[in-house]
Design a protein around this nucleic acid. Sequence first.
RNA 1: UCCCCGGUAGCUCAAUUGGUAGAGCGAGCGGCUGUUAACCGCUAGGUCGCAGGUUCGAGUCCUGCUCGGGGAGCCA
Length: 472
Amino acid sequence: MAWNTVKQALSTEPGAQITLKGWVRTRRDSKAGGGLSFIQLHDGTCFDAIQVVAKNDLPNYESEIQRLTTGASLVATGTLVESKGKGQSVEMQASEVTVVGWVEDPDTYPVPQKRHTMEYLREQAHLRVRTNTFGAVARVRHTLAAGIHRFFDERGFNWIHTPIISTSDAEGAGQMFRVSTLDLENLPRTPEGRVDYDQDFFGREAFLTVSGQLNVETYCEALSRVYTFGPTFRAENSNTSRHLAEFWMIEPEIAFADLADNARLAEDMLKYLFADLLERRADDMAFFDQHIEPGVVDRLKGIIESPFKTVTYTEAIDILEKSGKKWEFRVQWGSDMQSEHERYLTEEHFKQPIHVINYPKAIKAFYMRLNDAGTDNAPGETVAAMDTLVPGIGEMIGGSQREERLDVLDQRIREMGLDPQEYWWYRDLRRYGTVPHAGFGLGFERLIQFCTGMKNIRDVIPFPRAPRQAEF
RNA sequence: UCCCCGGUAGCUCAAUUGGUAGAGCGAGCGGCUGUUAACCGCUAGGUCGCAGGUUCGAGUCCUGCUCGGGGAGCCA
């Protein structure tokens, strides 16, 4: 059966006969003209709700309409008219209102029309999307996801579905969740007394992936421009507003490319996404700007308009040392930058997103390309790594040019105490037609946080997974 | 995992030096109003996170546990 969305209705000329289906946000009654009710109806198709006016001549006015409460679902048919009241240009004059689903006890309905804390709503994850804030987050999340696919598609990238289950136990990005069908109460043992993974589902140890990068590199060296966009998993016991155990990551990989190409791609992508978001979801973004973080819209506009700044790690350390700031953690060439350092650089010193490139090799992963000696006049060896830092979030993107030289790669693997044999298929890429290539990883939820101003990452994913949190 | 802070009506919070609980919002009913963060009146609603302990007496003090928040580390 055909019906109209609230979004369509709000942009339709008065006079049209329409049918709307949705949920009641509020109901207000008036005694005027013998009695009428104003129902704010939303269906999630846009930020705004529409006002449905139901008069007392409807057969179920007293029996049903006057008993409607926040959260009830209904179908309303009527005429779109110019509103006689202030606050909206059009409204529906209902000729028929059918209640589809009641709220069984309005007194204990978890999300009545009142102010709620984010923490409380997090405990009502199945209902919180009915609120203005979480409806807006859901639409923005979708728009960014669709924008990502469109951005890459327009540039000839192929979306590669890298596996969720991984058998390499050292992708180098943190603790992994084990995937097993073994009976934990009765584990099979080897003669030496260790767990016998030969008898497990895959005949070996398996985990949920922490990154699709190694896999996607293989497709890069055949399709040239590829990316992954899917869930990744970290079993780190991290309890912060910026970490999830299950989060989505975007990882493009480009062949015949260096670190500068990589940085350009990251910048182009972010600018494209921000512009796309402001255009397609102006209504939701206006809400975030007004109620969640004043200034988000201008912040995104500012980024779209100005080129990103690139600084080397060595320069960044110099800036931090000369800042005159008292650091909780020592600033020293060779040490990884702490949150306070990253935030100072992007929020106070440069006041814009920046790429920090060429990090000391000791603090970065084995697959990052070793720079020539003397690069940046650095006091030690560096790799072609890149972190994109943004105000308010800190690190949003981490990437690198990959090491394409087999001998250098093998040496780096050994230096990290890893076994080259474990990476046999990854090494094959360097044995058969190797090419310079580069890529980066973008945490999708951090991107959403940045665009919306939402403070806690658990509020930008429908059902957050975090230590001791997997209720829904 | 570490450091701080908190857990009292459906929600957000009060409760003096320990003396058996209050408000606002929400909800229900009534009044008023083309209403829209409505307004006015009335009503209902609480094993004060859980388990011990101190005390004549514990929401209030002590211990353990648990849940939530902020920050840090790890990172995206």
